[in-house]
Design a protein around this nucleic acid. Sequence first.
DNA 1: ACCCGCGCTTTCACTGGATGAAAGCCGACC
DNA 2: GGTCGGCTTTCATCCAGTGAAAGCGCGGGT
Lengths: 251, 251
Amino acid sequence: MQARSGRSVTSKVLALLDAFGPTEPALTLSELARRAGLPLPTAHRRVAELVAWGALERGDDARYRVGLRLWEVGSLAPRGLGLRELALPVMEDLYEVTHENVQLAVRQGLELVFIERIAGRHAVPVLTRVGGRFALHATGVGLVLLAHAPAEVQEQVLAGPLDRYTELTSTDPKRLRRQLAEVRRVGYAISDRQVTMDALSVAAPIRGPDGVQAAISLVVAYDRADPLALAPLVQAAGRVISRALSGPHGR
Amino acid sequence: MQARSGRSVTSKVLALLDAFGPTEPALTLSELARRAGLPLPTAHRRVAELVAWGALERGDDARYRVGLRLWEVGSLAPRGLGLRELALPVMEDLYEVTHENVQLAVRQGLELVFIERIAGRHAVPVLTRVGGRFALHATGVGLVLLAHAPAEVQEQVLAGPLDRYTELTSTDPKRLRRQLAEVRRVGYAISDRQVTMDALSVAAPIRGPDGVQAAISLVVAYDRADPLALAPLVQAAGRVISRALSGPHGR
DNA sequence: ACCCGCGCTTTCACTGGATGAAAGCCGACC
DNA sequence: GGTCGGCTTTCATCCAGTGAAAGCGCGGGT
């Protein structure tokens, strides 16, 4: 009567894929069924098809994991590996010059997704993961992406609860709104200890044919940070990638 | 036209995903339907669901592309980004030392899939793509992966047609079989101009708890190649990654 | 050795989501 | 402003999908 029937097969398949996450990379059939909200036999049949195709793989421990075939298809996402291919050389240059963490992210709905990252061995450890998500209102890349997002997206983020990560995180909509205006005005964003108290990030937009498509940032230890000196470097990197994005891949 | 009915919905959804490829990253609905072998209305409905979930995205040009959500899920594949995370630092070290192209690949069925690559700016251009596939019998990584594959896989590859890329490609099963035995004996593989006449690659296995899981290689210009000097470096890198693979990520 | 119990797999009769021919719609190009 | 190609919606039909229940297999306890 409730969600029993009236659910498309496709949505069930997608629910099964949704069951996986960074913290749950391997699941038994029962766990999968429970997470996807499906009866066990149903899950069993769908999963069997997904395994046959390669979307999932079954380990020797009888747990299922995301399969390589799905990774392959996912790697065709223009905003995923496509963007990465263009940005990586520039990110490497930026790393060579600064030896700090370099991050690349895009906006997905009301969150951001990290596309690529160069983790400096001697830089502050970054807790984010490639393929991982994060809120838009705290990180440098987040502020850039939010500042250039459609008004409707900005309003939703400003209206929603703004998680606090440190005492410096902007959880006041008024203050955040001012910050976003500033980001648009100067063309870069500085997130000063808004995620962790020991780090600061400087981010710049990457523009494509239809506005800001992504953001690039440096994450540096707070005590040796000189954000105003780094900003031009990050901005320059952003512009180089923007050019590559508008060039050969002109949609 | 023939496979009318008797086809599961799941297989249709997967056929739609399969329609995308490196050379066709953006498809119209009709193209998708044709490639997936589906009637147009059927494709339309399935695609609409995939777009709603984020597996596909619809551009302003009315073409569909692989969506970021699918990339996110794909990035959870242990043999994809998971392996990459472990291997990348070691690959970077290898690049620092040699300044040559570094590649990481795993076997998927009777082919290999490139997981990661560091393309040296001044090294020979590599034509492969991260997420791309290639035959097992020509490249360095391919020879390593094939040499340590289950006997059944080896037989299928040896029996099947062996594409020739250059005059040096091993297309004779007997010769290939000898090469594979040699690869197992010495613990590394050298592919001498078997893919292109201007390059050579040296590859070593990456071992996990259940045998060889992946392979790492250097691709260098033929005229400045000293494969015997490079082999120990590549092998050492393979061993470091092997250790990381067997360590924290037990199972 | 035997039993017990917990997950996975298979069966089977029923049903509603999926289907595709056909008709409707929309924008592009002539 | 008319025609064409491609996308979207409709609707009666039907088979793929469903899930309760029974069957299987293995590991752990006694």
